[in-house]
Write a protein that binds this DNA or RNA. Sequence first.
DNA 1: TCTGGGGTCCTAGGACCC
DNA 2: TCTGGGGTCCTAGGACCC
Length: 427
Amino acid sequence: MSQDRIALVDVNNFYVSCERVFDPLLEGRPVVVLSNNDGCVVARSAEAKALGIATGTPWFQLQAQARAWGLMARSSNYELYGDMSARVMEVVGRFGTWQEVYSIDESFVGLTGTPEQLGKTGEDIRAAVDLHVGVPVCVGIAATKTLAKFANRIAKQNPGLGGVCDLGAMPAGHADAIQHRVPVSGLWGVGGRTAARLKLMGIETIAELRAADPALIRKKFSVVLQRTVMELNGTECIPHTEERADKQQIMFSRSFSAPVTTVGAMEEVMAVYAQKAAARMHDDGLRASAMTVTAGTSRFAGGEGSFPAVTVRFPVPTQDPIVLVRAAVAAMRGSTVPGAAYLRAGVMFSGLEPADGPEMLDVFGSGTGASQPGVGGVLGEVRGRFGSQAIGIGLGGLAAQPGWTMKREHSSPRYTTEWAELPIVKA
DNA sequence: TCTGGGGTCCTAGGACCC
DNA sequence: TCTGGGGTCCTAGGACCC
């Protein structure tokens, strides 16, 4: 009998798998990909996991053993991963009646078929992604998103399944036995806090949560966890939306390779970060009605630390990079503590709306709102043709890399998005 | 020496309205 | 004597995700 099912398809160790496509030397070896600034581990190959390396481990703590372990590190290369992601999504989407891209390496797709056909489709998806993109994926198939996520996890942890797990096609009692073993924190949407509170109620495993009273869960927790309970019982509660919802906020935030200690250097940072965020906003065709600038000293140093956060509201929503840069610099000025060693900063835009919507009159004549038409567009065009460093405004137009620029010592080339960095194959 | 970045959704509570 | 209650909007903060 034909069934409507949801498949969750995701790439195994996505960032590592992307690096491996272009560098076969990484195959079969322990590999980690590092966060921005080469700070800590964000992705691990199976071999790295086997070494006991946890996500979030600071790279400097691993460096000493890296050689002995044969451990390879790569700086994160989001341009490459973003492009590889688009290719994977396109291939996976061919198999579904609908597709919802959930994250850079995962999408939900709608499948229809008999149990036999569903399993075959899962295998076909794996083969197609392997052929056209070259990265390994796992497929979890079930009646709800929560269960599809769970099935995907089973597929990942049991190599014998060949990367596909259709929960409904498992031998009777098998899935149930697993749910009796696995703690609730293994579920999508249940984090450490919630798991700890559930434990106080005597609920520790997925099976115990599945058997809980949804109304009681709603009362003690939230509608979110109530939905999880219902989804575990096979009732779909999390709608699928093919269209990506409009963004609510755009953020550019980075830590520095060297501390920023002067007002002048922080103004440089604000000018550069505001332009980065403004460029993203322009690409998305949006404008902002508010901006928040933040900075922070080390969370690991003793003492109080300094974590300024200033929000500015614009009288008229804007995407004008000149206005945004000026506002970011002004907002941070006076909020930092003299002499403090800042290690990170960020610029966030919120209150976003389409930039082509009706323009409000700046009746108060503040002069800070009304967009000068086209500045962002011109900047974007120049960057598109001559590279991201080709042009900038004020302190953001620095010709030389400032001392605080992000560290990326193990970066791979942008193989698929820059002509100058195409891989070269010798035969 | 060195410890990520970018998001979403929900809830509670306050301000304000009628 | 009786001292409301329903509704909306906004914001801050919590929790979670990858």
